[in-house]
Nucleic acid binder design. Structure first.
Lengths: 163, 163
DNA sequence: GGAATATCGTTTCAGTCGCAACGATTGTCA
DNA sequence: TGACAATCGTTGCGACTGAAACGATATTCC
């Protein structure tokens, strides 16, 4: 009666977290149940399908995963035969990671279904509504960019891929 | 050249996850730096400020946290003196959890700042744009509700609080 | 050239998480 | 009433995570 009640369900950060987690869980079934991949592994192989021979750090900078997480994901993918690690040609500190034929096959087995889930999710939204949603999310990112206390945004998410 | 490139940065589940995580991290500074609370602990005390004497399971059903996570969060909050656990009056299996005066004080120290961060985030969006964003997110939830493979949504997030 | 610095990927370590199993209590039904 | 089933909150266990430290390699600067 005295204080204004603070409603978690109306709190945007909470709302976003709940929606995002729900969608993430749904998508994780696509790459998890059939191929037993984790979210970091999924992001890594997707990134590799665009940027074919990249280092751990590049992946880290592009797909919003901490460096150790990328390193471990790559190791597991290598053990599963989806990925190969080669010493950097000129710079021996770097590791050049690329998909194996098996890795490509797995990706081909996952991507269509992942896109189908996304398409179904967006099915009730018109093209314009989808654009509005993306645009509003970008506005929130812009606001975070102006906040010195917010984490920086990865380059690829900001500018889009271009390889 | 042969396959259509699949761009992670354009994949809605990924976009949502990145935005949500970035915002969550920003908010976690509000309750983490000054009061050393974790995300589950934050959600629990916020929920308790609305529903004053509730069980672990009720919290679990309302704030999208697994049961063990709620249990552990409550234990830590109790150790910190922000919360008390009392045996259920009629049903001795239940635990009635409520905020202590200290818990209320901590909440009063956090909520305004959390709301300020949210307000700044939404600052560049008009009232109508905010409503559109929420509405579009609800549409995505509706679509997930129709997907039998998606996790169910918690009652309170669906219907809104009403205590 | 050679010492100091920077960067790369990995690993260590402590903390957290989710699933499943558990003991305890309550509800059900013959 | 008494055995069985259901529900409560907790905990054991294996897996995952992020920050920091690490060895190895490159670069910089004198």
């Amino acid at each position: 009666m005295t204080r204004d009640a603070f409603n978690l369900s109306d709190f945007l950060p909470y709302r976003l977290a709940v929606l995002s987690e729900r969608i993430s869980k749904r998508i994780s079934r696509v790459y998890g149940e059939k191929y037993d991949l984790s979210l970091p592994e999924w992001r890594v192989i997707v990134h590799l399908s665009r940027c074919h021979r990249v280092s751990v750090r590049e992946i880290h900078n592009c797909v919003n995963l901490e460096k150790p997480r990328v390193s471990r994901a790559v190791s597991r993918l290598e053990a599963a035969g989806l990925v190969v690690k080669e010493a950097g040609a000129t710079d021996h500190r770097l590791v050049e990671i690329s998909l194996t034929p098996t890795g490509w096959e797995v990706l081909d087995g996952i991507v269509p279904e992942a896109q189908a889930v996304e398409a179904r999710l967006l099915g009730s939204l018109s093209d314009e509504e989808q654009a509005v949603l993306i645009a509003l999310m970008e506005r929130l990112h812009d606001e975070l960019d102006r906040d010195p206390k917010a984490a920086r945004r990865s380059r690829m998410d900001r500018d889009g891929a271009s390889t």
